[in-house]
Design a protein around this nucleic acid. Structure first.
Lengths: 236, 236
DNA sequence: TTGCATGTATTGTATATACAACCAAGGTGG
DNA sequence: CCACCTTGGTTGTATATACAATACATGCAA
């Protein structure tokens, strides 16, 4: 691992653990340079990266401080898919397509703050509403934080429910986009032909780091997000 | 202006003007260093910044290339796409496709609480980011609540901005889905072939009733909703 | 007390250098 | 023809240094 990267890890833990709360001063470039026995430019690189990611705020002449996490005031709860289906009075069941340990590849490693070559827990589950596939949930889980992830029966309990039980999740980020599904995803969704799909990408943190990275894919013809979803501050 | 910043400007223009299309190679660090008579590290800073902003893609050993524009945007875009685009340092402009009064049809009448046969104000506007269409905004407005809606210049001010000015909006609801666009929408978006699109449907109320019903359609290849968007109560 | 100057700490910009990691193309040998 | 190696070019990491710009506290003077 690059030196600047290990410094980032060090700072990341300080912030994620809460040891350094919001607005707490972060070690200066020179201090980090001494502490880690690197040049100032290398320490600077670490701080700059964190600033770009929005975790810290830097002010010339003053210093570097832990950023205020703006919990985006969006009062939308993406509910558990199983609960949602049952609340409509429909029949819910799940099929486990993949459930195994894998070597982590580059892209996922970065997202979960793991190093390449480490193991990662991987699951793919299709969720059915009245025997119609409405979501395929592909998920990567940090094995250090959730060691028993693979030993659960996900036809009885969704990964969401299990993770909520075993970890104190604190924050999540989402991205939403429209895509044309890969053939593999079509198969998981019982789609004869590709059709526009809604993809939700979710990363969830607890105090110790990124817990899980999930990609939820819904066929456009069978799913709509919202209903009465409303964003605070939303306007015309 | 800092040296690295003027180099960025130079590259901006090459890309925004279309002189360098997608995947076109960008001058290397050494080439820029020579051309602008700066050190390689300064040229590097400019390229790195552009990469962080997503305008270019860099590959070790290969080079730097103009990125494929896939707007990564936050929920701010739902509020005001023009501001969002400008905040990315990109060029924004709009084209008014439709702006007229129409007889309201069944479906719209119900949504706006109007009776069939009444008049409704209808606008269709395409929003461009660096001359690439990223959203078509189809909107129906209640004429009783916003009588002057048609007499505005929506190349200078978005309907959103105008409506915020003239009405005390209180609430909005959204729905998000993935669809395959109608031919008419493809034309508005300059799409040769239909591709998966993200559709956001929004209704906005003020105290006197439903003000506006809007359908925002984004090409999936050019738009992603989210970034660091986080929903309260979100979980694994 | 108020206002101003000054000094120190910190971040911002810029340069020169070195080496590592990687890619793509071209040549070489089988 | 194909597999392998070399080689040049590019980006990635790291260091050492210098000076500029800003914030803040301190101390001094009006």
């Amino acid at each position: 691992m690059a030196k600047f990267s290990s410094i980032k890890q060090h700072l990341y833990r300080k912030i994620a653990s809460g040891e350094w709360p919001e607005n707490h001063p972060v070690s200066s470039e020179n201090a980090l340079a001494q502490q880690f026995q690197v040049s100032r430019m290398t320490a600077r690189r670490a701080l700059q990266d964190l600033a770009d990611e929005g975790l810290v705020v830097r002010t010339q002449g003053s210093g570097t401080y832990v950023a205020q996490i703006k919990s985006q005031t969006s009062f939308m709860a993406i509910r558990n898919i199983a609960d949602e289906i049952r609340s409509r009075g429909h029949n819910y069941h799940a099929k486990v397509q993949v459930l195994r340990q894998e070597k982590v590849v580059d892209q996922i490693a970065e997202l979960l703050n793991l190093t390449v070559g480490e193991k990662v827990l991987h699951s793919v589950i299709t969720h059915f509403e009245n025997d119609l596939a409405v979501q395929v949930e592909e998920r990567f889980v940090n094995p250090q934080l959730v060691p028993d992830y693979l030993r659960q029966d996900y036809t009885q309990m969704t990964p969401h429910e299990y993770l909520c039980e075993v970890t104190p999740l604190t924050e999540a980020s989402h991205e939403i986009e429209a895509i044309s599904p890969r053939p593999q995803v079509c198969q998981w969704l019982d789609l004869d032909r590709p059709e526009p799909c809604l993809r939700i990408i979710r990363r969830t943190w607890c105090a110790d780091g990124v817990v899980t990275y999930a990609v939820l894919t819904h066929p456009g013809s069978r799913f709509r997000l919202g209903g009465h979803l409303s964003f605070q501050s939303a306007r015309a």
